[in-house]
Nucleic acid binder design. Sequence first.
DNA 1: AAAACGGGGGC
DNA 2: GCCCCAGTTTT
Length: 205
Amino acid sequence: MDIDELMRRLFELYPDGCTVDMREPFFALISTVMSHRTRDDVTYPAAEKLFKRFSTPEEMAEAEVEEIETLIKDVGFYRVKAGRIKEISRILLEEYNGRVPDEMETLLKLPGVGRKTANCVLAHAFLKEDALAVDTHVHRISNRLGLVVTKNPEDTEIELKNVLPKKYWINVNILLVKFGQNVCRPVSPRCGVCILNDMCPKILL
DNA sequence: AAAACGGGGGC
DNA sequence: GCCCCAGTTTT
């Protein structure tokens, strides 16, 4: 498997990154919490609308939770997420001087933040080179391509780090989310329009 | 280990 | 109208 060629094709297919500014830690954290079990084309507009109204932990912590709910009502689990967003903002203010922590162990203490979300923040906002965010898309596609043979995203994170050059870790998540949504879908993958057929051991056509 | 959270979008 | 979705928490 030529990993460099694989990634080159994905970069060529999806040259644009995320419309939310993931280099801003607070935006990266909140938008990633919003993205749980929700498509990115639904998540991004809602996140942009939310950040236009409340753009800092201070503003978000003082906001009425009902207004946060209204702003993000298009995403799934929006009531739970609105509560988490407000609580996360309060904790950032009270515990971390209004800053987003840049350590896995600390991020995991925040409500609604698991390993995948923490890795997204570490990779995209803090440019941590040892962070690789593995969601269901990365897990599924890495297995279909034969890059790894794993049962769960946790094992995929470990195994994929042994196979994928470090320089790709920061981007592979966003690329495979788009690819997984448009082509290598969970059910009925569109192998007929896939540009990776010659590399894939699981062509369904 | 499995259920629960949930509105939007594709078909 | 039915099925699935950038996970995490709770049972």
